[in-house]
Nucleic acid binder design. Structure first.
Lengths: 128, 128
DNA sequence: AAACAAATGTGAGAAAAGCTGACATAAATC
DNA sequence: GATTTATGTCAGCTTTTCTCACATTTGTTT
């Protein structure tokens, strides 16, 4: 997984932050979770921790609802997407895939901005 | 400012998250702030909120300290960097700069992954 | 219209996390 | 051996988050 994606999946945002970022209420956010639309991690104290991807997901949900779709509909959309992804995994790799993957790898290799090798968010050092 | 940079400057991480990310103690993090090495924002409840850039800064500080540098030294380094940036601002724009800027802009224009135009993390909608 | 379901509001009581300020301590430096 | 530097620890208080329950609103169904 590329470092940018990693950063987007890090569950580091408490619900208060998500409230500000999405302009949803805590009640709404927890309700959408109850409905299985988002699944935040929990910290040691059992508090919900969200990733940037979760925030995007919540903004999407907000949009869908504003469009008149109901939660059952949204649930269906996400189930469908997941099914698509599963199917994708079965599909054999084409030449075109190879080219695209190679291209992505090159971008990733050149795009890092770590300050040095000793300590980094994404590659933890062994404890001393 | 490009959206990636924007994301890195968003002060959304409470100290508990930063502790996990940096493996520093709360005491250390607050002490470095006391020494002017980081300046987290505060939320409405007066709690410190850190950005990803702040986290990088803290990891840097950790490295410097591990290298035997003391806080006065680190302070000096950051003052120096800030002075450099100030000087940079005075300098006129060269042809090379223009090329680099144009290149960055193009990358940014093609690299966005917003789901749609209505709601987004980085361009808030007007309240209804 | 009455009843129902969906989505959200609201409040209580408890737990977790964060704050400041003070004092303690280990290691390095004078 | 006295100071300074960097960090640990504790106490008392505030803020945030948790779950659970009940209320309200709006659109749909009998």
């Amino acid at each position: 997984m590329k470092e940018k994606e990693l950063r987007r999946t890090l569950a580091v945002l408490p619900i208060g932050t998500v409230i500000k970022l999405t302009d949803l209420t805590a009640r709404q956010i927890r309700y959408y979770e109850e409905q299985g639309l988002v699944t935040p991690k929990r910290n040691k104290g059992n508090q919900r921790m969200y990733s940037l991807n979760d925030v995007d997901r919540l903004l999407e949900i907000k949009d869908y609802l504003a469009d008149g779709m109901n939660i059952a509909g949204i649930k269906y959309v996400y189930q469908q997407q997941q099914a698509d992804q599963q199917a994708q995994k079965q599909r054999p790799v084409t030449d075109d895939d190879v080219r695209r993957i190679l291209h992505d790898e090159l971008l990733a290799a050149g795009g890092l901005d770590h300050h040095d090798q000793r300590a980094s968010l994404y590659h933890q050092n062994p404890k001393k």
